[in-house]
Design a protein around this nucleic acid. Sequence first.
DNA 1: TTCACAATAT
DNA 2: AATATTGTGA
Length: 145
Amino acid sequence: MKGVSHGACDYLMKPVCIEELCNIWQHVIRRKVESKSQSKSKHNHEESDQGNKGGDHNEKLNRKRKDEEEDEENGNESDDPTTKKKPRVVWSIDLHRKFVAAINQLGIEKTMPKRILDSMNVDGLTRENVASHLQALPNEDQSTS
DNA sequence: TTCACAATAT
DNA sequence: AATATTGTGA
């Protein structure tokens, strides 16, 4: 909804049905063709690359990804007040302490997200957070080559 | 409905 | 890399 109110002309709902995708794509093509080389004021035109049919080819140099301007929400949530911004959970060392504490308090056999979660007793923390963290941990072992 | 888990996305 | 989100099956 936010996107639409900001100028998006359409949207797709997940899971994206291939048919819808085709439709919307048609519209995009049409618009491009219609406006031939009408360059709007600001809009990075990301053109698809050209097929090199010839033998020679020129080096395409880098393009800069730096174009960003206009629309910025100044706390303007006129349409959808339910737009709540979820702050990413940052696993502070404190959180980690509780995490570890919870784990060996529960015994290594019962390390299920839910258990850990309420054993940590951290307000605002969701089971998913714990689960995700749990999943991220195994990254400690470096394979010795 | 809720959960754990793995896979995947951001 | 660190977190979040999603798809599955129980």
